[in-house]
Design a binder for these strands. Structure first.
Lengths: 325, 325
DNA sequence: TTGTAAGCGTTATCAG
DNA sequence: CTGATAACGCTTACAA
């Protein structure tokens, strides 16, 4: 460590640069001055090897790149995480994990380069992530697909309840043939929303038979809507599990000559930017996406600091009325 | 290293796990079997400290989080990078760098945790990145704002030429009051596009006075369009420096009662997803965004492998005609 | 408050 | 082909 040319030993330099304690103020100032002048940057690998901490946190998005980043909810979660981590001492590593490189990522996450892991949007096919917490603290956004023995920390809305609220709103509008466009079947949040929608219809004495499986994307949502409409032209209400699919559904409906909301009322989920840029502004279930991200980061930071935190945190969701329903 | 319990020394384990050479096939098989059984994951910090390589690459997006991820061009670049890196031995670290944490990021990039850096969307206010290549190989997407002494590697379209093509297309449509909505003034690509637009108008003997400054975002594009329209109601053509702003401009025009393209013709840039989801499908200058990402990654990988590569790589752009012009 | 010295978990050099 | 042994650059008791 060349900075020892400041007239002191490496230990002192280390202390001056990090601890701020057990060193005289004068030494601190001097060492820092010299370090700055020499453009010294501590080697992070050596640092974490010696201290057994990396001061880095990984945010894992287990989705093929492009897909994930087209989802405003996920992007907002990322922004929240990023903001909260920024003003901590930790550094954020964003990893968009396509299916292929899952093993690679797992190896990375367990190799000691990160002190904690944040997982957004977990699918059941990525169940390795569920057991990652044996080796490093993990916080999920969205209920994990499986309850593990030491349970996983997570932040989520009450998806089933929120979906029921959405379905009930459509019912209160007098709709009787209410379909749902779901998220991917291997995600807990998606399943919960479908369950909530079904419960509301059943409670109203209606059959819950109109289900189109989507995948959060506009393409998937449009395809589901088209199939639904063709098989059941009498549809008069749609609850889509996110705004992106809802917006796509609105497009399909309009193109098919139906008016929204008079012929078919549509409710989305997320209250994301997609809700406002849809051809008909969407009525939707709000979800504090960015706040969720901040909460995830905050929780992890606290776990890392040794605090005790609750396993699950429920964030609020409520109906936001706009033009589509 | 517990795996030494396989009956050999650490050295042999290391060789068996990495090199595949200087070890007998039998030993390799045995060691790997034991390692797998024990769930052994090499410590990455120790590894890079000893080998002086991290096998990681950083992709830096020097934009405040949300902004960047709302830009389909950037997202596509990211996807391309990600794809190319995935099937290399390197690991990708995505860092969205808000203004605040610039120093933090610079320290990270120079601390030896990454072997190379990819920079998307560089602004002149982030000029520290321009000199990063003294310490670690760097490849930019988009011409850097400044020519440094050892020059920086970059991939870009010929922005000025492409902008001229766009402006000339509007001219060929008989438009005479052609405005431009620019990108942020501190980005080279944005400036080049404005220059190209200006050159075309001047060559046609027209004044190039209608300039609205945008920032790549829908909000910025809409604001610029509104201001332009108010100050110059006679506008009959608009060249927006990206599709997102072009789409926003179309919205503003329609809401102001102008029809597109009859009253005002609009040309965008990128040929991104935004071009198709605009209220009037956009005529735009294509840019192979995802390919650009792949090229960036490829170039860096080759530099890392010790190959000689060209400083600048120009990718193709051409006019894509749709409804808006 | 500062120095000394022992690691941290790997790779790499050099013998054997 | 394999085993010792010395780094890698830093932190951290433990002494001084």
């Amino acid at each position: 460590m060349v900075a020892a040319e400041a007239g002191v030993t490496r230990s002192t330099v280390s202390r001056a640069l990090n601890a701020e304690r057990d060193v005289s103020a004068a030494t601190i100032a001097h060492v820092r001055e010299v370090a700055a002048r020499m453009g010294y940057v501590p080697n992070r690998a050596a640092k974490s090897l010696a201290s057994a901490r990396s001061m880095a946190i990984a945010l894992v998005i287990p989705e093929p790149g492009v897909l994930a980043l087209a989802d405003p909810h996920l992007v907002a979660v990322m922004a929240g995480v990023s903001r909260r981590i920024e003003d901590s001492d930790y550094l954020l590593n964003l990893m968009v994990a396509g299916d292929s490189e899952n093993a690679k990522i797992m190896r990375y996450l367990t190799s000691g380069v990160v002190d904690g892991v944040l997982v957004a949007s977990q699918h059941s096919r990525h169940d390795a992530l569920l057991h990652l917490h044996d080796l490093v603290p993990v916080v999920f956004s969205g209920r994990p697909t499986e309850v593990t023995d030491p349970p996983n920390y997570f932040i989520d809305v009450d998806n089933a309840r929120a979906a029921s609220v959405a379905a009930n709103h459509l019912l209160s509008l007098g709709r009787r043939r209410i379909a749902t466009i779901t998220g991917p079947e291997d995600m807990a949040a998606a399943g919960d929303r479908t369950d909530g929608w079904r419960a509301a219809l059943v409670a109203a004495g209606l059959p819950a038979d109109l289900v189109g499986v989507g995948d959060w994307t506009a393409l998937g949502g449009a395809a589901a809507m088209r199939a639904l409409l063709e098989a059941h032209p009498d549809i008069d209400g749609v609850f889509a599990a996110n705004d992106v699919m809802a917006a796509a559904a609105v497009s399909v409906l309009l193109d098919a000559g139906r008016s929204v909301p008079s012929d078919v009322a549509v409710v989305g989920f997320d209250d994301s930017s997609a809700a406002l840029s849809a051809r008909v502004p969407l009525t939707t279930m709000s979800q504090p996406s960015e706040h969720t991200g901040e909460q995830m980061a905050d929780l992890l930071l606290r776990i890392l600091a040794g605090e005790d935190v609750p396993i699950s945190t429920v964030v609020e969701s409520h109906l936001v009325r706009r033009a589509s329903a």
